[in-house]
Simulated scan of single mutants.
Amino acid sequence: MTNAMKITEEQSLMVDTIRKVTEEKFKPRAAEISETGEFPMENIKLLGDLGILGISIPEEYGGSDGTVMDAVLILEEIAKGCYITAMAALGEIGVQTKAIVAYGTEEQKHKYLPRIARGDAILAICITEPDTGSDAAQMKTNAVLKGNKYIVNGTKTMISRAEVADLFLLFTRFEGEEGYKGIGCLLVDKDTLGLQVKQGFKTMGGEYLWEVVLEDCEVPVENVLVRENGFKKLMSGFNTQRCLNPAITLGLAEGAFNEALRFTKEREQFGQKISDFQGIQWMLAEMYTEIEASKALLYKAAMNAGKGFSDQLEASTAKFFTNEMAIRVTNKALQLHGGYGYTKEYPVERMVRGARFGALGGGTSEIQKNVIAKKLLNADRIY
């Protein structure tokens, strides 16, 4: 890694703190949490107490005004020990919070951001619908102004953290206006009349995704977060999310590599450590190289983002490569464990399951390739 890509001394200290907390507090319960699917509220509260959840929030609202790179390092480190806790933290330091910071009114910022920083407000972002996934512009949820309230009807699905969320960032179209221009975002408190969290779907990663139903849901006009150019602003936020999503899969790959390295140096077959076999050594070398290549792409995109939004080409490239890398590396780690890796006694099977989320959430690998290709074809010159 070049000097330009090295993390700062302050970031290094932050990583050391998170690593210690993850090893001592999060990792020991990771298997249990994965089995039950419970939201790791205790872990989130601890991160709030440490000031970690305020990394994306300016100091005047109770945060530490950190960078995208800070958030990447946090999620990467937590994911090495507990995927579900990393996913929970993503909701607090990711696109939801950054959207309120970037587009919220002063009243909205003062109302919500200090609570988020403390870990006292869990956020859920609602975009996906039963018939609308990658093609978000076709969403059917609609908000109609009636007096000083918007009346919202629609159904969202595959929503993380909905069962414990205090605030929903609901993407909807306004007044039935079709296409991208009609889409904006409302802030919906959990006790809002007409909002219901229904059926939950347990994922192979262990966490639950939920269905959120809005039936004549009444949202005050002052809760509009984004109205004009809502879809464009949404996509800007997701450029940053495309750095934070792969931060988790990178951490999973690194965690799985650590487990595989340890296992191969301890396990004996045919009278020698299996790490002495050239075939095993080559697998480890391949895994390490892929992890380092992914880290270079991701760190570049995150560092260039500063405190704002990531470049679309850099973020999509990092997400695509890192997500696919994590699937390969975690699978190789399991293979290196042999039959033991397939059991729940070892954490690698859990990491394989967790890694599979990355290429689906926040835009599939196929969507990322579309974005990359479009950017390349619209450029006069790349190199």
Rank of each mutant, 00 (worst) to 15 (best):
K6F: 08
E10W: 00
S12F: 11
V15E: 00
D16M: 09
D16T: 10
T17C: 12
I18P: 00
K20S: 12
F26K: 02
F26C: 03
I33L: 10
F39M: 05
D49L: 09
E59H: 08
Y61V: 07
G62C: 03
D65C: 07
M69Q: 14
M69P: 02
G81K: 03
T85C: 03
T85S: 04
I93Y: 00
K98F: 02
A99W: 07
I100C: 00
I100L: 12
I100N: 00
Y103A: 02
G104D: 04
L113Y: 01
I116S: 08
A124V: 03
T132P: 01
G133W: 11
D135A: 13
A136K: 11
A137S: 15
A143Y: 02
G154V: 08
G154P: 05
T155N: 08
K156I: 07
R173K: 15
F174W: 04
C185S: 12
L187K: 09
V188Q: 06
D189W: 01
T192S: 15
G200M: 11
G205N: 10
G206H: 08
E211T: 15
C217K: 07
P220V: 06
V221N: 03
N223R: 08
V226L: 15
R227Q: 14
E228G: 01
F231V: 01
M235D: 11
S236H: 12
A247Q: 08
L252C: 07
A253R: 07
R267K: 13
Q269N: 10
K273H: 13
M283T: 11
M287C: 11
M287P: 03
E290G: 15
E290W: 13
A296S: 14
K319S: 02
K319Q: 02
K319A: 01
K319H: 08
N323H: 02
M325H: 03
R328G: 04
L334D: 01
Y340M: 13
Y342F: 12
V348S: 04
E349W: 12
M351V: 05
S365C: 15
I367T: 13
N370C: 10
I372V: 10
I372S: 05
R381P: 00
